[in-house]
């Protein structure tokens, strides 16, 4: 496989995103002292680990052509349930974490079932899920609950060192492991390929005998699981449970997936792209933090512009892509002799 063969309309957005990340990082390195270091790079992973995990789940949903707006609320609900159980009921972390992961998955399973069995719009179902989960947080408490459990504190502070001055947090490691598993799931399992097939053409997927319904439900379950896992990472990061945690995270996750090269119409994109998307959001935040004079809302402005630019690029690629096929000669037998005179 040559280079030209590897770069096509599918992989180009991912490539552009990666290059853009490198440019932004390079820009920061030139403009600000101390920006260019391994740790600044690793901090992007540490600070955005939970966003990355949530975006990975979101990517699967978007690949089927769906959407999941409930992820941010599930993250918040997870932190709330965790904080309440750990602080007020003094449950062990080893019971609480599996429990909240199960709750998140169940939440996703229910939404997926509604979407599949009743042919409801994913947008509306998950919007309902978003309100519901956010509201449930306040049933537990309207205030923030600090987590003082020593195990949580220990995990939160634990650093895995690389060489002299570089380190990663537990959360960052978990998000990288999640990414590796997600890539395997997407590229090397029947489930993953069915996800792509559904996004490409759901009717065809059905006619080819693929388990469309089961896969759709599982995708929302997976997203619910990833959201809950993201919530667990937030508790490690923030050491608190609060109904206002992860407000608007669903939009960050969608933005990361789109910037990472996933088409909102489904069927096209890579899980790894979403991590790069998250890192781009992170590096923009870092740049603005390093600058110091700009309001943090400039992050939003930058993301907004980027998002539109990427959607535009994908659209243009799509239109150009349909003409690509004609360029290649593909028949083994050239039409000598049999070619009709024109």
């Amino acid at each position: 496989m040559n280079l030209a063969g590897t770069i096509n309309t599918r992989t180009l957005p991912l490539l552009v995103t990666s290059v853009l990340f490198a440019l932004l990082f390079g820009f920061g390195s030139v403009s600000y002292d101390n920006f260019f270091s391994v740790q600044v790079f690793l901090n992007l992973l540490i600070d955005n680990a939970f966003v990355a995990v949530v975006a990975i789940g979101m990517t699967f949903v978007i690949l089927t052509g769906g959407i999941d707006l409930s992820v941010g609320s599930i993250v918040a609900l997870t932190t709330m349930v965790t904080a309440a159980l750990v602080e007020q009921q003094h449950w062990s972390i080893w019971v609480v974490v599996p429990l909240v992961l199960a709750i998140g998955s169940l939440f996703g399973l229910l939404m997926g079932s509604l979407i599949h069995y009743f042919r409801m719009q994913p947008f509306i179902v998950t919007l309902g899920g978003m309100f519901l989960a956010r509201g449930l947080c306040y049933v537990i408490s309207i205030d923030s609950i600090a987590i003082t459990d020593p195990t949580y504190a220990a995990i939160s502070e634990y650093r895995i060192s690389f060489g002299e001055e570089a380190f990663l947090s537990v959360s960052a490691i978990i998000s990288l492991l999640t990414l590796a598993l997600a890539i395997f799931l997407a590229q090397y399992t029947r489930f993953g390929r069915t996800v792509y097939a559904i996004g490409g053409n759901e009717r065809s997927a059905l006619l080819m005998g693929l388990p469309v319904g089961r896969t759709k439900i599982l995708v929302y379950t997976l997203s619910g699981f990833c959201s809950a896992l993201g919530g667990v990472l937030v508790t490690f990061y923030m050491l608190s449970g609060y109904g206002l945690h992860a407000l608007g995270l669903e939009m960050d996750a969608i933005a990361a997936a789109v910037i990472g090269g996933t088409l909102l119409t489904g069927g096209v994109g890579y899980v790894a792209g979403s991590l790069v998307g998250v890192m781009i959001l992170g590096v923009i935040q870092s740049l603005i933090a390093f600058d110091g004079s700009l309001s943090s809302w400039w992050t939003r402005i930058a993301i907004g512009v980027l998002l539109c630019a990427f959607c535009l690029m994908q659209r243009l690629l799509e239109q150009g892509g349909s003409n690509l096929g004609a360029i290649f000669s593909y028949w083994k037998k050239p039409a000598e002799g049999s070619a009709p005179a024109r």
């Binding site: 792509y196 097939a197 490409g200 053409n201 009717r203 997927a205 006619l207 080819m208 693929l210 069927g267």
Partner: peptide, 22 residues
């Protein structure tokens, strides 16, 4: 009735993929 976003090879075999381990 195929999926335009998948590779040619995948379109031929999806639904009955040969597996190697997992």
């Amino acid at each position: 009735n195929l999926c335009p976003n998948l590779s040619v090879a995948e379109n031929i075999f999806i639904g009955r993929f040969p597996m190697r381990g997992l």
